[in-house]
Amino acid sequence: MNNLNKQSHAFLRFAIDAGVLRFGNFTLKSGRQSPYFFNAGLFHTGAQIAQLGRYYAATLVSSTLNYDMLFGPAYKGIPLAVATAIALAEQHGYDVPYAFNRKETKDHGEGGQMIGAPLSRRVLIIDDVMTAGTAVREAVNLIEAAGAKPAGVIIALDRGERGYRHSSAVNEVQTQFGIPVVSIAHIRDLIQLLREPSAAHFADAATRAALLDYYRTHGVDSLAD
C-alpha cells in the first residue's frame, strides 16, 4: 500500500470513529438509497477539526495543485479553509492566505460579501463533498468576479457517482471549468479499506456487500474486484 492509500485509509478510519462516515440506509438528495453517508459538519470538536485540517493540508502538499490562497464557500467550507491554512503553516511551513464568503452581503460596517484576504491570483476552493457542484460553481463565479483565477478544488470524499448526465459532479466541474479536483479519499478507498481484516468491526459482511453493489450500480467508473 502506498503513502496516499495509507493516508486515505487513515482519514476514513478517523471519519468513521468520529461518526462522520456512517453505514446504514440513507436517502440522498438525488433520491438514491445509499448504504453510507458522509457529513463533515459532524466534525465538531477542536481536536477533530485540527486533525481534519491536517488531512487536507497533507493531501494538498502531496498533490500537483498550484495555488496562492484558499477559499472556503459558506458555510461548511469556512472551518475547512481556516483549519487547512493553519495546518499548512504549522505542519508544512506554508503561510497561505484564506478567505470565505457570507451568504448575504453585509450592508453596514466594513460591508461586502467576502471575509479574509482579497481574492487574487490562483484561488483553491475547499469543500467537504461534491454532490451537484453547485457550491463550486458559485465559488468560481465569486473568484472570477474579483478578477482572480480558480486553481482547483479539494474535497474530503469523492463519492464517484454518476449524475444525471452520466458523469460525476467532479468530472463535470473539471470539464466545465478546466480545473483539477482532488480528494482526501475516494469511495474506492473505502471499499478497499473494508476488505481489510482490521476493519471488520467497522461494517459487517452485508454492509460491505451493499456498498460494493451500490458503487457497481452508480459508480462513474468500473470497479475491479
Rank of each mutant, 00 (worst) to 15 (best):
N2P: 02
F11I: 00
F11R: 04
R13H: 06
F14C: 00
I16V: 12
A18W: 08
G19H: 06
V20M: 01
T27H: 13
S30T: 09
G31K: 08
P35I: 04
Y36W: 11
Y36V: 06
F37E: 02
F38T: 00
G46Y: 10
G46K: 11
Q48G: 01
Y55W: 06
Y56H: 05
A58K: 11
A58G: 06
S63Q: 03
T64D: 15
L65N: 05
Y67V: 02
D68G: 04
L70P: 00
F71H: 07
A74I: 07
A74T: 05
Y75K: 09
K76T: 02
G77D: 03
G77W: 07
L80I: 13
A81H: 06
A81C: 02
V82F: 14
A87G: 01
A87S: 06
A89D: 14
Q91M: 15
D95P: 06
V96F: 08
Y98E: 06
A99N: 08
R102K: 10
K103C: 03
K103L: 07
K103W: 12
K106P: 01
G109M: 09
G111L: 12
G112T: 04
M114L: 15
A117C: 11
P118T: 05
P118V: 03
L124H: 03
I125D: 05
T131F: 12
G133L: 03
V136G: 04
R137A: 10
E138P: 00
A139S: 07
N141Q: 15
A146N: 10
A146P: 09
A146R: 12
G147W: 10
G147F: 07
A148G: 03
K149A: 08
P150T: 03
I155N: 02
R159A: 01
E161L: 04
R162V: 10
G163R: 05
Y164G: 15
Y164N: 15
R165L: 14
R165H: 14
S168L: 07
Q174M: 14
Q176H: 14
I179E: 04
P180N: 08
P180S: 10
V181G: 01
V182C: 06
V182D: 05
S183V: 00
A185E: 00
I187R: 05
I187Q: 08
R188T: 15
D189P: 02
D189K: 01
I191C: 05
Q192S: 15
R195E: 15
P197C: 02
H201C: 12
H201L: 11
H201S: 13
R208Q: 13
A210E: 12
L211W: 12
L211A: 07
Y214I: 04
Y214K: 10
R216E: 13
T217N: 12
S222F: 13
L223N: 03
A224M: 13
